[in-house]
Nucleic acid binder design. Structure first.
Length: 650
DNA sequence: TTAGGGTTAG
């Protein structure tokens, strides 16, 4: 409804305040204006708080004129309940509902309350209301079932979902477009993609949402090619179809495809909404594409989507993952300084900022940000502690981290989970406290998973503790036989001590089990273009003579290749030849050639940076007087004037 | 009334 229409109604109401039909469109207007938690930002200047005030005023007017709930016709009653529900005031909605006799409540009144509980309340209460309908012989309709099916999804109950589907069939409601789509969605989200596909193939009433449900389903199980096929076959696509594909690709690690699709969507003239923006930003963070991230930020600003908390948090995370802490902090300050912010949003915002400091090796800021959060009276959650512990680990703040871990349950009321055990094993393991780390694993209240043993193996690898490393590796080979990373870590440890017969044995195991090693690669963005470097083949972007020239200059400055990690028992010369062609070194050579001297060289690598590349990068930052930022699979290294932000602890 | 969404380890 447009604003002038509202004014016309208000004028009518002013002249004849007892004329009930005038109230209905007003409550409807309020419902349509509500932002579902203030996130949509329609832009007419009505905040949810002011809409709730208006709802209460209008409701009070009705009561003052003698219209209590029993005298209000059910259609208007359902509109008032809907208005309260959409503004998340479920108490008022429920109170109003309970002030009428349940036997006179009809389907539309129930539907209004069910909708509110399904969106903002609990699935249990939603289903209780559904049962109450049944007990009172009030028939559910095509408006009821989508919310009931949504509740089955929330409860992760396939059995319940199947029963509700049966009821739809009995009532003949399965042919309804909305009910049909919701049934499909229920099967797809509860792991029955084949049933979803079967329904999709068999139903005649299909619209863009039916396609979107199936596409999202395939993406959720990692079947990007089937999802792409469906997407390509669609004759009509809407913003949800595009967003589903973008987010699915990003979540399946196909960040570059996700970003390309976002641009393709824009070219087709489809306007992104805030969900599209928060779906594409993680893709920029994944590949550390600061240029794309900034471009999308500008775009979000031009669409006035940047004020939405979820967008700000996604931006903050993206900047953190792109190594731009100044921009990250700017987003953080904007969200946290706003009045009346939702506490949940604030917690997520702090979690993200803590993580961003952690990735960038700013341990002191990790701790102060956490303490600031506590000082504001916010309750940390499980994610906070993962960010906090790993953030302190990256900076070697072991005592602080260990103290927080020990106080998690007693002081902060957060139960340590597997993730937290992985973090604390990593924390202790990295600084050589491997016996303690192993003791923690032995005392865990749950069976240690691969993440925990992986953290221990990582610690053993840095500390060169083969005895415990072998124990961890054995467990990992049982648990995740096809993860090549574990074989590589153990191989490296054997190679370092010259036990090449064990290296060869592991290599044979990899071959026999057809396990593919994850080849190392690095990439770099220069003037909007992304360049990929691999160590296995000659680079099309860096010629041999450039590389030799750089190596000569570096050797003059004191560089000596650290070849301890070479897995082959070959000559030192051959080892040096291999080490100098590591992908991040090729990227750096390219960056020095192509980038302006004032520009930071930003390299991203898919694996952990090796000791030699770390030493080399430190020296190159000094010899060539360049600021270098390398993001490896775990964290950032900011190199400047011969030293690294990680202080050689990573 | 249905479909897409922000934070977390190695």
């Amino acid at each position: 409804m447009q604003l002038p229409v509202k004014i016309v109604f208000l004028q009518t109401l002013h002249r004849n305040p007892s004329h009930l039909p005038c109230y209905t469109p007003l409550f409807q207007f309020i419902t349509s204006e509500s932002g579902g938690g203030g996130r949509i930002g329609i832009g007419t200047g009505n905040s949810d708080a002011s809409l709730l005030r208006q709802t209460r005023q209008l409701h009070c007017q009705l009561l003052l004129r003698g219209f209590d709930a029993k005298l209000i016709p059910s259609f208007l009653l359902s509109r008032i309940i809907a208005a309260y529900s959409s503004l998340q005031d479920l108490n008022s909605a429920t109170l109003l509902f309970s002030s009428i006799k349940i036997s006179v409540a009809d389907t539309i009144v129930f539907n209004a309350l069910i909708r509110g509980h399904a969106r903002f309340g609990s699935p249990e209460t939603t289903l209780q209301l559904f049962r109450a309908m049944h007990v009172n012989n009030i028939h559910p309709d095509h408006f009821t079932f989508p919310f009931i099916l949504k509740s089955c999804i929330s409860l992760q109950s396939l059995d319940l979902g199947r029963s509700v589907h049966s009821l739809c069939l009995i009532l003949g409601l399965h042919r309804d477009l909305y009910v049909g789509t919701s049934v499909m969605d229920m099967y797809v989200k509860l792991g029955e993609i084949r049933s979803g596909q079967y329904l999709f193939d068999s139903i005649s009433m299909k619209d863009v949402s039916s396609w979107n449900v199936l596409i999202a389903g395939y993406l959720s199980i990692g079947s990007c090619e089937r999802a792409s096929d469906l997407f390509d076959k669609m004759t009509v696509r809407n913003v949800v179809s595009w967003t589903a594909m973008i987010s699915g690709l990003a979540q399946n690690g196909m960040a570059d495809r996700a970003i390309s699709l976002f641009h393709a969507m824009e070219e087709q003239g489809v306007r992104p909404n805030w969900i599209t923006i928060v779906s594409v930003l993680p893709a920029c963070g994944q590949i550390a594409s600061l240029e794309h991230g900034k471009k999308i930020h500008r775009h979000a600003t031009s669409l006035t989507l940047d004020g939405i908390p979820a967008v700000q948090i996604a931006l903050l995370s993206m900047y953190g993952r792109c190594g731009s802490l100044i921009d990250a902090r700017r987003c953080f300050d904007r969200v946290t300084s706003e009045e009346g912010m939702d506490r949940r949003d604030l917690v997520v915002c702090y979690n993200t900022m803590i993580a961003a400091y952690g990735w960038n090796g700013r341990g002191v800021d990790v701790e102060s940000c956490f303490e600031e959060m506590i000082g504001r009276g916010l309750e940390p959650d499980a994610v906070t502690f993962v960010s906090l512990l790993s953030g302190l680990t990256h900076s070697g703040l072991v005592e602080q981290g260990y103290r927080y871990f020990k106080r998690m349950r007693s002081f902060y009321h957060v139960e340590p989970s597997m993730e937290h055990y992985s973090c604390v094993v990593d924390l202790l393991g990295r600084c050589g406290r491997l016996e303690e780390a192993k003791a923690i694993i032995d005392g865990m209240p749950m069976e240690a998973g691969a993440s925990v043993w992986g953290a221990l193996l990582g610690g053993c690898s840095s500390e060169r503790n083969l005895a415990i490393g072998e124990i961890a590796a054995e467990r990992l080979f049982e648990m995740e036989a096809y993860n090549s990373g574990n074989y590589v870590l153990l191989s490296n440890m054997y190679a370092e001590v010259g036990r090449f017969e064990r290296v060869e044995e592991l290599r044979r195991k990899l071959r026999e089990n057809e396990i593919l090693k994850n080849p190392g690669c690095s990439w770099m963005e220069v003037k909007g273009k992304c360049y990929l470097f691999t160590s296995c083949s000659p680079s099309p972007f860096v010629c041999e003579s450039t590389l030799e020239k750089m190596l000569k200059k570096m050797k003059e400055a004191g560089y000596v290749a650290d070849t301890r990690l070479c897995l082959h028992d070959v000559s030192e010369e051959e080892k040096e030849h291999s080490v100098i062609r590591h992908s991040e070194k090729l990227a750096l050579a390219f960056g020095i050639m192509k980038c302006e001297s004032r520009d930071k060289l930003r390299v991203t690598k898919n694996l952990r940076i090796c000791v030699d590349c770390h030493n080399f990068s430190k020296l190159i930052s000094q010899v060539y007087d360049r600021e270098i930022v390398i993001r490896d699979v775990n964290r950032f290294h900011h190199f400047s004037q011969g030293s690294c932000s990680c202080h050689d602890y990573w």
